[in-house]
Each structure stands twice: as C-alpha cells, then as structure tokens.
Design a binder for these strands. Structure first.
Lengths: 189, 189
DNA sequence: GTCTATAGCTTGATAGAC
DNA sequence: GTCTATCAAGCTATAGAC
C-alpha cells in the first residue's frame, strides 16, 4: 500500500483531541481536517464512514487504552492498593494531570448517533465493573464494592468537569490520590 | 407592547432545554425554533444578540435560580444540616432526580464564546463559595471547608455525568442525601 | 493516499411585509 | 411580535485527477 502522510496513530490522536474539546456535534470535518493536516476528502478515505466512524474509532481507541492501562493492571500482581496506585498514575497521565477532558463524557451530549452512545455506555459499564472487582478483592461486600466503584467514577468525572470549568485541576489529582484507599482498603462504610 | 406568542419564561425554559441537551455548538437556531414554536426570525427579535444572547440568558436564569434556591436557603434560619437538607431537595427537583444534565457543565465545551465561559466560571465560583461558607459555619477549618465544598460539587457534577451516560440516576440521589453530612457536620477529615 | 473541485444541505443572521 | 424570504458562509459528503 502507498505511504500515508500521517500514521494511523497520529491521525487518531488528533481526531480524538478535536472530539474531546468540541463534543460530537461541535467537531466539524473542517476542524478535524485542520487538526490532522489532511484535506477533508483524505479524511473520508481513511474513515469511509465519515464523522461517525471517526468518533467510533476514538471511542475504540479509548477502550483499548483502558484495557491496557486500567483493566489489565487491576488484575496484575501485587496488593489491591499497589495496583490501584499504578492505575491512578496511568489515569493521571492519560488526563494530563486534569488538563484534558473526558472524551467519553463529552461525546455523549445530544445530537450524536445512538450507536456511539451505546459504545460509551458499554465502556463505562466495563470501567465500573473493573473498579467493583478490585474493591471486592480488597474484601468489601458486593454492595459496598459497587457503591465505592461508583464513587470513584463520580470523583474522576466530576473533578474533570470542575477542572474544565474552574481551571483548577488539583481536586482531580486529589481524587486520584485517594483512589487506592477508596477501592483498595476495606473500611467502615 | 403587542402580545407575545410565548411568555419569556416559557421561551427561556425551552431554550435552556435545548442548550442543556446539545451544548452551545450543538444547539442550532433551527432546533431552538422548533423547541420554542417561534420562527427563527422571531427568536432574533426576542434575543437581538442571537445565539450568544440566548445562552447568556440561560446562564443568567440558572444563576438566578441558584440564588433563590441554593444561596439564600444556605443563609436562612435553622441548623446547617437542616438548611442543607432543604438545598438538597431543591437540587433534586432542579435536576429532576438526576434525569436532567447540568447546563453549566454542558455549555463549557470548546466552541462557545469566551464571555459564556467566564459567566459559567463565575457561577461555579459562587456555588463553591456558598458551600464553603456553610461548611465553615458548621465548624470546619478553612481548608477542610474548601475541600468538602469541592467534594460536594464534584459529587453532584460527576453523578450527573454518570446518570447521563449509564442512565442510572441513583448515585446522584445518594450524593444529595449525603450532602448535609458532608458539609454540615464537622467530622474528622 | 492525497489532492482540488463540487454537490446539496444547514448554519447563523437579516430585511421587510403584516 | 411574528412571519416569509433571503443571504453568505458553513456543513457533510462525493467525484475524479494525480
């Protein structure tokens, strides 16, 4: 096959960036073209399904990242708290210390295709389940584990919203710091 | 002045609804026209500043609501916990038990005018400060009060995101239920 | 695989009749 | 105060040269 002007990885990175900032509806093909350095028609060559396929690819890429940097480490060796510290560090890098917004959050506003919402919904479910699993492993009851997992996700998403609006990302860093204790240490509920 | 086809209140209500669902960029004039029942040109008559003025009006209306149903009750009579219970009930109604999304969250994606972001930023600051104030009054240290206020906002925004994506609004209701204890009772940090 | 050119529709916004 | 009609610019998407 002929040489590509930009690698798949670079392309997806830039596309994700635009979706993350503008949401599905706000991410126009022109904006995506400018961000990637590819003309609009070339973008359609790489993503024949157009905007919807680009968004799907971004979600798939995010899911893949979570598999490798969240779900896998949670099932690796070491104590639950050790594993959670590693995951927290990964999440901190992924969201660039709170300066990036959550693409899964931002893509689910109205106006997007239903299939996209379904994919994101599934991703959140998997995330929640992974957090729940580690909490169970740390010795919590089923209901406590579920509640803590929700708390963890709420903390991450909420602090990212706060960071976006107020410009202060310290609460996000604190949420991550508290993650090992929240999910990895069975305390009184 | 001649009779209006729709009242200011109805108009703002419908406009807010569209912005809440689609964000600033996704809320098109046509969509706003359909939602309000007014033709596009009539919308420009009511809001000469166009889309930007509509969004500003929505934010102003939200701020007004917060003044009346959050800030005021927090400074009214009764113990901090009693006041917080009242505020939590108001917030539960405002977000329709977690089925509505936060317009302040949704409007701050990229693509919106800077002035809008500034207004929302100010609104969040006021909200944070109000929560901080009641926590101080409940006997917490300055730093604890600030941290708890952030936690409260994170919980509300995060659980609304979770409700939007997963469709489960129970975590939101639980966050509100925990609000009086979080901000109104000085415990060990 | 990328490009220029273009199609057809939607966008935000305005002019002017009633 | 609301409407129909209209504008230029933007949109998603496609056709076809290189």
């Amino acid at each position: 096959m002929p040489a590509s002007k930009v690698t798949d990885e670079f392309l997806l990175e830039k596309v994700a960036e635009v979706f993350r900032i503008h949401g599905y509806e706000g991410a126009s093909i022109r904006l995506l073209s400018q961000a990637t350095g590819l003309e609009r028609a070339s973008l359609y060559h790489r993503f024949p399904g157009g905007k919807e396929e680009m968004a799907a690819a971004v979600v798939a890429r995010t899911c893949e990242w979570f598999g490798r940097h969240v779900f896998s480490p949670l099932q690796a060796g070491g104590s639950p708290e050790e594993r959670l510290r590693r995951v927290a560090a990964n999440l901190r890098d992924f969201y660039r210390r709170g300066t990036l917004w959550c693409v899964l959050d931002v893509m689910t506003l109205g106006g997007g295709p239903d299939a996209l919402l379904a994919r994101v919904r599934a991703a959140y479910s998997a995330w929640l389940k992974a957090f729940e699993g580690i909490a169970r492993e740390a010795g919590m009851s089923a209901s406590t584990a579920r509640s803590r997992a929700q708390q963890a996700l709420i903390g991450i998403e909420g602090s990212l919203v706060l960071a976006r609006v107020t410009g202060d990302s310290r609460p996000f860093l604190r949420v991550l710091q508290d993650l090992p204790a929240l999910l990895g240490a069975a305390r009184s509920e």
